[in-house]
Design a protein around this nucleic acid. Sequence first.
DNA 1: CTGAAAGCGCTTACAG
DNA 2: CTGAAAGCGCTTACAG
Lengths: 393, 393
Amino acid sequence: MAAPAAEAPGPGGRGPESAAAGRSAGGRGPESALREIRAGAITEPMNTRAGRGGQNPTMDQVAEAAGVSRATVSRVINGAPSVDAKIREMVERAIAETGYVPNVAARSLVTRKSNSVALVISEPDRPYDASFLNRIFTDPYFGRITAGATGALRPHDIHLVIIPTDSTDHHHVLRYLRQGHVDGVLLISSHDEDPLPRQVHDLGIPAVVSARPASPLAASFVDVDQRLGARLAAEHLLARGCRRLATISGPLDMPAGLDRLDGFRSYLANRGYTEVPSVEGDFTRGGGEDCARRLLTDHPDIDGLFVASDLMAEGALRAVQDLGRRVPDDVAVVGFDDSSAALDCRPLLTTIRQPVEEMAAEMAEVLMAHIAAPGRLPRSVTFQPTLVIRESA
Amino acid sequence: MAAPAAEAPGPGGRGPESAAAGRSAGGRGPESALREIRAGAITEPMNTRAGRGGQNPTMDQVAEAAGVSRATVSRVINGAPSVDAKIREMVERAIAETGYVPNVAARSLVTRKSNSVALVISEPDRPYDASFLNRIFTDPYFGRITAGATGALRPHDIHLVIIPTDSTDHHHVLRYLRQGHVDGVLLISSHDEDPLPRQVHDLGIPAVVSARPASPLAASFVDVDQRLGARLAAEHLLARGCRRLATISGPLDMPAGLDRLDGFRSYLANRGYTEVPSVEGDFTRGGGEDCARRLLTDHPDIDGLFVASDLMAEGALRAVQDLGRRVPDDVAVVGFDDSSAALDCRPLLTTIRQPVEEMAAEMAEVLMAHIAAPGRLPRSVTFQPTLVIRESA
DNA sequence: CTGAAAGCGCTTACAG
DNA sequence: CTGAAAGCGCTTACAG
């Protein structure tokens, strides 16, 4: 019998850990945390793949074990229909016995496919540091994007490589893309001035952008109807009797900021509400809190508030209530997103849902179509937002 | 002159978008969001790399352009010291002119290096769905891990591939690792019962685990001294005069849950405090809120609370204050982590800092050492937590 | 349906 | 210091 499959358990750990050596070394951060270094439990050698020092078997070895040619092994692995059932079975047994796994480098050298796509999250204004990544890993939006894209890609056995990037870093990303690490890119870019969508487009590699690019680009994108969402919020606030409306917008250099603000205001303007106070937020919880405080002190009579993201709404709710107003009785609040943050709010947040998971899945589908047929014309897909009524309005 | 480098801008977009076609299609989610599909702006062909249909130039083309052999081009690209300065310069010019970028598949086929490592985030108990990813992309802990690892890897030009996984999915991950996509793995695994650390170890691929594995394993890991952190919290609470202490722990099937609870209790027990109410939380904000409510209704006299994570502490603070208690005067609260959540708290959270970024960077360093020298013995590194005093205690 | 052979684009001993 | 050649582990026309 050949080497066992890798899934076979190695010899279990048995030795107790050796005693701590207790050498302490200086930490690297400002905290200067001390640390001990000690030898780990030594229970087995690093490589246990019997007799082959950790080397994976090669396709030739499988072929030999099965008594066929390498080409045949390749065919059964790739599901070529033309293989005799008996031979296929022999090959499959040989694969199982040897624990064979194809070498991806060799494969993609000839197929020119990597079977993975990049999810590039571009935030041009922030330095590439802990706070940038903190924002990405703290805003539910990106989790939904990842979930949606992964779900759509997985059935096709395509991996997602997540690449956060800021403007100091575009060069690296472009280089990475050109090196053939991935077959295409899902680009999350939300700032008007971000040059990355155009740069990626000019690479000629299949790409789908998360929102309509600020300047026209012959690229596919998927988006939600931002203005309609804002209108839904205005309608609802009006319908429940609010008459002094105000809004906390997102950053105005993002379509998601500007379009929601503009959609809200222009709907109201058409109904005679021309004085609609607004203040520009930053899509963070803390920002929402500050904005609400400012808004309510400048305009104490506000009775309806549209906040352009759930995260900001969470902070706004806190400020409104700190100021002694009841929600929704004194001030009704509508958010935007319907992310998990909406359920962290007290009272539960009434909000405009954008189907982010479905949007990300659609991005992935469109991307796969472009990869499969490189000449395909770009297209855009727009989803509709919906009102989700809970407690805050 | 050869083809322009990819960084050269293509012809700018100029056409206006074509009119929306307005075909609506059924959505896929329960929300049934409608969507429009329309043709994107057609301003230029997908591939603009002049004359070569998007194909990257090959090393042979660079060699020809520079008038040298392919081997020499390879040497200058890989920084071999033995290349004549003039020749090097010619080659570099040829590289710039052709916009050459090495093909990673070809390179790693021979070097057997991918220049990337995986960050596997394993959460065995949850289904691989939106809520699982939502947790990962919402808990500041993972952002800090990513930031720390990225920072350490970047100078070495090594990419991080982030792979969230649950127990239904281990097989895929193991397969991915065996296929040679990465040179090593950083494994974030916090549940006792998680089989993944052992499985990864048995693969024989370089790996570093984020915390001491529950069962002994001859693997390298880095951790924080959990018990010491809990003791720091107890000391501080006692020092500020609290006498009725209680704690909200993490899940008890995680070392981070059990060790913090046990460290807290055993320190107090040695000082005569044998009655220390505790309740098991789940490391989420909502969970912390529920636990605090339960704790305070069952034990109304509690005056000091140690909460095993900042996220839970944020929820606990809300509950404590909802119940009409002042923080810290009636109830003092100490968290654990010193993540960004500590600053989202009102009052600002006093907490036990674990230097997560530095820990992740250390994981990356140790991993790179293992990759460079496969025979290296495993070792563990322990960081010390520190008390960060703010407002809540 | 199967195999022998060429070739994907690099790196790296080995000569010179 | 440089080049000719072998080879990394696959896939895929091309014959048979």
